[in-house]
């Protein structure tokens, strides 16, 4: 089992957001987490990544059998957890090349490897850019600075390709994307799918799931997973809307 979440409770500023989440993710699987706004989808992603503003009040998250609670944000990342941000932040003056080289080399150091020589790094960049269909001038720019919404999301997928995570969580990567950008993002994910990694795709709409076919769909509602099923659950949600879930809960 790659990721095991048991009865997870988490709160921010004393307000409980996650109220007992259970989720199992195995290698090779793609999970979609859906649900109305404000039900804790992004919180779940942040808590797995280790964001400190959220306090875990009960339950546990096991990753490769280890308790994640003990790992720092950067160590979780170095162990292969990647978070694709809903709102990627701008870092003025820092080129994506420099940013990625720092990240790749810190991860290598953690694994006891020497830094990647400059030439090899640039070749790796070129290879991954081709893979995710990114034009070269994007990587020369400062991280997310002045990027359009679509460019930011493509950049997230590019970074995911560079870091080759074991567990990738994409937090509403599809929001605000036009069809072309959506296709690029989805293709990126599909090309990076392997039997030894897994994806958790958080989305509000069914649309992305036309391109990324999930093995499992979960509905997160009021801090708990209230329904799980196959990909057909997504279609059912699209048809009936979230009101159906709400009514069922009442």
């Amino acid at each position: 089992m790659l990721l095991q979440i048991k009865n997870l409770h988490a709160s921010i500023n004393g307000k409980e957001i996650l109220k007992g989440v259970d989720l199992d993710v195995r290698e090779g699987e793609v999970h979609a987490i859906m649900g109305p706004n404000g039900t804790g989808k992004s919180t779940l992603a942040s808590v797995i990544a280790g964001r400190e503003v959220f306090e875990v009040t009960a339950g546990e998250i096991l990753y490769k059998g280890k308790d994640l609670h003990k790992l720092s944000i950067e160590d979780r990342a170095r162990e292969g957890i990647f978070l694709g941000f809903q709102y990627p932040v701008e870092i003025p003056g820092v080129s994506i090349t420099n940013f990625m080289r720092t990240a790749v080399n810190e991860i290598r150091k953690f694994k006891g490897l020497d830094p990647l020589p400059g030439g090899d790094f640039l070749r790796l960049m070129e290879e991954k850019k081709r893979l995710v269909e990114i034009t070269s001038n994007l990587t020369n720019r400062s991280v997310n600075e002045g990027f359009s919404g679509g460019e930011k999301k493509k950049n997230e997928i590019f970074q995911m390709a560079m870091l080759e995570p074991v567990l990738a969580i994409l937090d509403e990567t599809d929001s605000g994307l036009d069809i072309d950008a959506l296709r690029i993002v989805a293709n990126g994910v599909n090309k990076l799918r392997r039997p030894d990694n897994a994806f958790v795709v958080i989305t509000h709409y069914q649309r992305l799931l036309d391109y990324i076919i999930p093995d499992f769909v979960h509905v997160l509602f009021e801090g708990r997973i209230v329904k799980s099923g196959g990909k057909e659950l997504a279609l059912e949600l699209e048809e009936k809307g979230y009101d159906w879930i709400k009514k069922e809960q009442e």
Binding site: I73, E74, A77, F99, E106, I107, F110, L163
Partner: peptide, 17 residues
């Protein structure tokens, strides 16, 4: 948080920023 999530330590992140 963004830098750390990419495996960059807080210290390096500040240097970078």
């Amino acid at each position: 948080f963004y830098c750390q999530q990419r495996g960059i330590s807080a210290e390096s992140a500040i240097g970078l920023i």
